[in-house]
């Protein structure tokens, strides 16, 4: 093969690789379905809530690899003393299978400060709080008003400082920033459920 052909191949290869990187970036930046969060804390909810403190809810699919980044971001937030003085977090795990309590995420969350774990076996709470994507965070202040709803990662599975995390902290410690952010993670709806929800939304 001539050198010219090799150069042609090299150019094609570089282009293919570059385009693949762009494709990854686009995939990683594609958010999940947004939540239809209630404006106030539903009185019927059985999730724990501490009087006089804000409650940070994170709805998580226990097997979703991307949700680890969201949990890590929440961990960062809950490690802040100013946050812990004002809020308590609850990670609501979706009952995906019988061994959910043995999942890595469950174990990690159980070590996090000021954080409770709730098992939403029948997904009542998930539906109650309108969460549709794993990693969905909702913050209700001490009075029960929704002050934050959305994701706390910059993209799918990417931990690291991002606007969502910053605004979450702001929502707890004030002054509040942007209240809504895209969520990156696995879907919490079943495939059929997803279709019916979408048609309902339409």
């Amino acid at each position: 093969m001539t050198t010219r052909r090799w150069f042609g191949l090299l150019a094609g290869w570089a282009l293919a690789v570059a385009l693949t990187f762009v494709g990854i970036a686009r995939y990683k930046s594609e958010p999940g379905l947004p939540a239809a969060a209630p404006a106030r804390w539903p009185e019927a909810s059985g999730l724990p809530r501490t009087a006089g403190m804000a409650t940070v809810l994170l709805f998580a699919h226990p097997r979703c690899p991307c949700t680890r980044a969201s949990i890590l971001e929440l961990n960062e937030v809950m490690n802040r003393a100013d946050v812990r003085q004002r809020a308590r977090a609850v990670v609501v795990f979706f009952q995906s299978d019988a061994s959910v309590e043995r999942s890595d995420l469950w174990k990690f969350v159980s070590q996090m400060p000021s954080t409770d774990i709730a098992l939403d076996a029948s997904q009542v709470e998930r539906h109650r709080f309108g969460a549709r994507t794993s990693g969905q965070v909702e913050v209700f202040d001490a009075e029960g008003a929704l002050v934050f709803s959305g994701g706390i990662t910059g993209s799918r599975g990417h931990a690291g400082l991002n606007v969502g995390r910053t605004d979450l902290i702001a929502a707890v410690t004030g002054p509040a920033g942007e209240a809504a952010h895209p969520v990156y993670g696995c879907g919490l709806d079943e495939p059929g459920e997803l279709a019916s929800n979408e048609s309902a939304n339409r």
Binding site: P65, G187, P191
Partner: peptide, 17 residues
């Protein structure tokens, strides 16, 4: 090992990773 599946509820599908 780390991200074999992505999920839609309880339904797994091959993860893009």
């Amino acid at each position: 090992l780390v991200s074999p599946h992505t999920w839609a509820g309880r339904t797994p599908s091959l993860h893009s990773h």
